[in-house]
Amino acid sequence: MKHKISVIAFLVMTLLINISIKAGSDFDKAMMKAKKNLKEAMDKSDETKLIKVRGQFERILQLKKDIWLVNYYIALSDYGLSMTGMASNKSDVIKKYTLSGIDVINKSIDENPEFADSYVLLENLNFNRWQYEQDKMQEIISATQSADDAAKKLDPNNPRLLLTNGIASYYTPEAFGGGAKVAIPQLEKSIDVFKTRKEKKDIYPDWGYDLALGYMALSLIKRDDDGDIKSAKSYIDQAVKINPESDFISKYVMKQYKEAEKE
């Protein structure tokens, strides 16, 4: 009798594991597909595609698995949409998606406060608040600093954190302690980490390597010491090799390089 019960129990367990593996594999498949679409939409700053991919992640929420990670990607889509608003100078778009992104990423952090990338994204979203509420300068500085500190505590060598710091320095005037000279070592470190970094799971975020190379090129162009322009080209080439689809690299960074080269 005991034998029979053990066999039935074993079979039920096997069945459950099987169902779970299937659900897990559906989730991973859907996530990988959406992640790929998100990359394509971000590469082209395509608002329509970004809206669609945001919806794709929202639908994945129905599987009720790793909700914190799905929310991370929804917030990342919002960040991408907010950036398209910046490119088209539409402050209402920036505001709408920045607010939504902050709301969603905070939900993600509530569910998994140990994921450094969430804080990096929160920091980036807070940076975008500058575009529509300069009156909350002190609050924004506190919020970005606080997110940066949290990410550093969890994963000080996160390449997207180092990249974010590098980008922030690149855009910050020298009078405020920023500038290309400050950005270059930060971006160098980010690139070094990207070279060897392998995320724990394929569905985890891995974006940023091409951006780090691109901003490195921009920083070198801005610094313009001897040999900087030549080095910038080498970083652009590496970025194009990693991500030939990126408009940011092939259009914006390349244009800056060509102008600098002419001078």
Binding site: D26, A30, I51, K52, R54, G55, Q56, E58, R59, I60, Q62, L63
Partner: peptide, 13 residues
């Protein structure tokens, strides 16, 4: 607008 059949990932925008 995101449309989804509840409990599945079938849907569209």
């Amino acid at each position: 607008v995101n449309i989804v059949i509840k409990g599945t990932i079938d849907g569209s925008t």
